[in-house]
């Protein structure tokens, strides 16, 4: 366990070494957040309604989505593909370390750093913008939303890892990741709540893993779902985690048989 804690610490050291890089990254994250915030502020007037959202709920969704993205989407495991294509994977295969746990620890370090900054930035934005924020006071919804976010962390980890494994078959690891980022941007619900989509499309989305990354935990936080729907959602997300874990394991084992440490 100690070695994984050390990996988390190393991520922090690395991020604080390249401070300008990290600061500019955070600036970008906040610019993207502000774009969506002001867009929705313009679309829904103070007393207006958009689907099942009034201005307060929508702005809470957008700001909450920014915080959740930091918890769930921020990661380091995008480097798996580069490890494979550049032959760096060999260094880890011969070490007494679990390669999956190594990346998960890296992700945790990255998330912890990003969360600490996001809390500070969002507090500043709250003080400046004074948005009409919806605060959930029912502990049941808060606990269930936290559980959904916890499951989403694993869901994203396995999705992200799986994309990286393309490296076993093709040196083009960034092209599939480009598509993946676009899909996540739109289908995870970070830009808008997925239930504003046409009903037939939304019904399909309920069965996709992306829905459970940002949209579903936020929807639970807002208290817009019945308990049965929440439990169904958590079960669906958990099944996706299991399916993705099995696929990742299978692809990893197949990939290792092809791996030639090319580049080393």
């Amino acid at each position: 366990m100690k070695k994984y804690i050390l990996i988390i610490k190393n991520v922090w050291s690395e991020m604080t070494t390249y401070r300008l890089n990290f600061a500019l990254w955070r600036l970008r994250v906040n610019l993207q957040l502000l774009t969506m915030y002001f867009l929705w502020l313009a679309i829904i007037p103070t007393s207006g309604q958009f689907g099942s959202y009034n201005q307060s709920l929508m702005l809470t969704y957008i700001l909450g989505g920014a915080l959740l993205s930091t918890v769930i989407i921020s990661s380091r495991s995008y480097g798996v593909g580069d490890h494979i294509t550049q032959g760096d994977l060999s260094n880890y295969l011969i070490r007494p370390i679990n390669y999956f746990a190594f990346w998960f620890a890296q992700d945790l370090g990255d998330k912890a750093m990003n969360i600490s900054f996001a809390i500070f930035e969002l507090t500043a934005l709250f003080l400046i913008l004074k948005p009409p924020f919806f605060i959930q006071t029912d502990p049941t919804f808060l606990i269930l939303a936290a559980i959904c976010a916890f499951v989403a962390v694993f869901l994203y980890f396995f999705l992200n890892f799986l994309i990286g494994l393309v490296g076993f078959w093709s040196p083009e690891v960034w092209a599939p990741r480009f598509i993946f980022i676009i899909l996540i941007t739109f289908f995870a619900g970070g830009l808008f709540p997925l239930d504003i989509l046409p009903a037939p499309l939304y019904e399909i989305f309920k069965y996709l893993p992306f829905t459970y990354l940002i949209y579903f935990p936020l929807k639970v936080y807002l208290g817009q779902l019945y308990l049965q729907q929440i439990l169904q959602g958590i079960a669906t997300a958990a099944i996706w985690v299991l399916i993705l874990y099995l696929i990742v394991k299978f692809v990893w084992n197949r990939g290792l048989k092809l791996y030639t440490a090319y580049g080393r």
Partner: peptide, 14 residues
């Protein structure tokens, strides 16, 4: 890399 080019074009269109 035709594969990479095709994926990037598809991504941009998406």
């Amino acid at each position: 890399s035709r594969f990479g080019a095709a994926i990037f074009i598809i991504g941009k269109i998406l």
